[in-house]
Design a protein around this nucleic acid. Structure first.
Length: 379
RNA sequence: GUGGGUAUAGCUCAGGUGGUUAGAGCACCAGAUUGUGGCUCUGGGGGCCGUCGGUUCAAGUCCGAUUAUCCACC
């Protein structure tokens, strides 16, 4: 297996590492840029991803299975060839859609029946199906098929769901081995990451983490967070689970979060992140700056000649004023979305680079203290 | 010039037979958004109901005049 994770340095629980894939090295901690349908929403292509400092692109199994279908993606060279992104990639398994499309699915022991959100067609996604689709998509990292449980949820439900997700993980592992082993293997270099669940129940979280750690997978994720619980509760669960995650494997906190969340989660031993927030916020006119998050649509920016963030080197901030960007939003121009998404992703990727530099130099804690609260402020 | 229609929020319009603080959509202003069903969702400000007069306990609503505007015909 060409996959490997090397821990370079630690500061407290914060970790600086490098994860090697067949498509290049990932310097961690890392933010993965979300391209659910093999495109960044807001009109960005893979070429733009390079410009915003992206290391890893993330796509979605459920969405690409429905459209265009994994066989088409495979015939065109897998996701790397299809969307022309040469760097490392990860696919999410469809487990999050068990949560986000809750009204359109039914969970069984075998897997999940969905009604397609596009045309209502029934489709089945279980551990084997998800792994097979992800093998065809050909990302460097495949995620286990799990059930992302909503919050709050009764303990009985979470306990049963958690046990089922653990059984599904064994099936994912078996199918992954089959798909990556032998001469005819479709994608011998694809890694599988397991996902911890357990809602907000401490004992379930820890027991589940210990159980799945025994499978010795290439990486592990914490899932089911940032789905309704408080920020404090999220931090508490990360700190609770982290000591039970293998130290020599990457830890991926799924779906998180704000810039402040990233700093706090790195401080709690997390290495990989992804989140739709920077892209979604950008599309809604919320732009991150060193002073906090601003809403460019606010009237106070109508005559503001300054860039969104004077300290930023992104294409938006290098060339355009706040007044111009506000105008583009008010006028409904597509360019507003594109420039804003470029900015926010640039901001996130640069923040991660700053975090890596700080850990390298043993000053991460002071960076966290200086920025965690400030970056999440609304200005 | 004659006949007819229309005047209600910034815009386009709803407001049976008169009856509490006149509504909607868009626009405007502001919040929300965490492994992306969504340029989405939630909230807010804003109107001497063209003007003047009359009828009535009570008029956006009925009557008259007037002004503006549109249409048709001379």
């Amino acid at each position: 297996m060409s996959m490997s994770f090397v821990l370079l340095k630690t500061e407290g629980r914060a970790r600086r590492g490098v994860y090697r894939t067949a498509h290049g090295e990932i310097q961690t901690p890392v933010f993965m840029n979300v391209a659910t349908q093999a495109a960044i929403k807001g009109g960005l292509s893979s070429f733009d991803l390079a410009d915003v400092g992206c290391q890893v692109a993330l796509c979605n199994t459920y969405h690409l299975h429905l459209r265009p279908g994994e066989e088409i993606v495979r015939a065109l060279g897998g996701l790397h060839g299809f969307m022309r992104w040469p760097g490392p990639m990860l696919t999410d398994s469809g487990g999050f859609q068990v949560f986000s499309l809750a009204s359109l699915r039914r969970v069984t022991e075998e897997g999940v029946w969905f009604a397609s959100h596009i045309d209502g067609r029934r489709l089945f996604l279980g551990p084997e199906e998800s792994m097979a689709i992800q093998a065809s998509l050909g990302a460097d990292i495949a995620m286990a098929f799990d059930e992302c449980v909503s919050n709050p949820a009764p303990r009985d439900y979470v306990e049963a769901s958690c046990a089922r997700t653990a059984r599904w993980l064994t099936r994912c592992r078996d199918e992954w081995r089959r798909l990556t082993a032998g001469d005819g293997a479709q994608n011998p270099d694809q890694a599988l990451f397991g996902i911890n669940q357990g809602g907000t129940y401490d004992d379930l979280r820890v027991a589940h983490m210990r159980e799945i750690a025994a499978l010795a997978l290439p990486g592990y994720a914490i899932g089911g967070l940032a789905v309704g619980e408080s920020t404090e509760e999220m931090y508490r669960i990360i700190s609770l689970v982290e000591p039970h995650m293998p130290a020599d494997r990457p830890r991926y906190l799924m779906g998180v979060g704000t810039p402040g969340n990233l700093l706090e989660a790195v401080a709690r031993g997390m290495d990989f992140f992804d989140c739709v927030l920077p892209a979604r916020n950008a599309r809604h006119g919320h732009l991150y700056t060193e002073e906090g998050c601003l809403n460019i649509k606010n009237e106070k920016y109508a005559r503001d000649a300054a860039p969104v963030d004077a300290a930023c080197g992104c294409p938006l901030c290098r060339h355009f004023s706040r007044a111009y960007l506000r105008h583009l939003f008010k006028a409904g121009e597509i360019l507003a979305l594109r420039l804003s998404v470029l900015h926010n992703l640039f901001f996130y990727n640069r923040l991660m680079a700053e975090i890596r530099g700080a850990i390298d130099e043993g000053r991460f804690e002071s960076l966290r203290q200086a920025k965690a609260e400030r970056l999440d402020r609304r200005i």
